[in-house]
Simulated scan of single mutants.
Amino acid sequence: MTSEKSLLLVHAHPDDETIGTGATMAKYLAEGAHVTLVTCTAGEMGEILVPELAHLAADRDDALGAHRRGEIEAAMAALKAPDGSEIDHRWLGGFGTYRDSGMTWSADGTHAQPDPDARENAFWYADLTEAADHLVTIIREVRPQVLVTYDEFGNYGHPDHIQAHRVATYAAHLAAVPTYKKELGEAHEVDRIFWTAIAESWIREGLRAARAAGDDESLGGMDPEGPLPMATPDVDIAAAIDGTSYADQKVAAMRSYPTQMDMEQGMFAMTNSLGTTAWSHEHFRIAKGTVDGHGLTDLFAGL
Rank of each mutant, 00 (worst) to 15 (best):
E200N: 07
M267T: 08
L8K: 00
T41L: 03
D236R: 12
L207Q: 04
M270H: 10
A210V: 13
V148T: 02
K80I: 00
Y156W: 15
E282N: 09
H283C: 10
A75Q: 05
A126I: 11
A231L: 07
G275P: 06
A118E: 02
R99Q: 08
D100F: 02
P116D: 06
L9Y: 01
R90C: 01
T259A: 15
G226R: 09
A118R: 01
A81I: 06
T97A: 14
D59L: 10
A253K: 03
D108T: 02
P178Q: 01
E264Y: 05
A26E: 00
I286Q: 00
E73L: 15
L128D: 14
P144M: 12
Y98A: 06
T24A: 08
Q163P: 00
M103Q: 08
T149S: 15
H55Y: 13
V167Y: 00
K288W: 02
E189D: 12
R211W: 08
H161N: 01
G20E: 05
W279P: 15
A301V: 02
Q265L: 10
A168G: 03
L147Q: 02
E44K: 14
E130D: 10
F268W: 12
R192Q: 05
A122V: 02
R208F: 00
P258N: 09
D88L: 12
V38D: 04
R204Y: 09
G266V: 07
A42G: 09
D151Y: 07
R166I: 05
T290E: 15
T39Q: 06
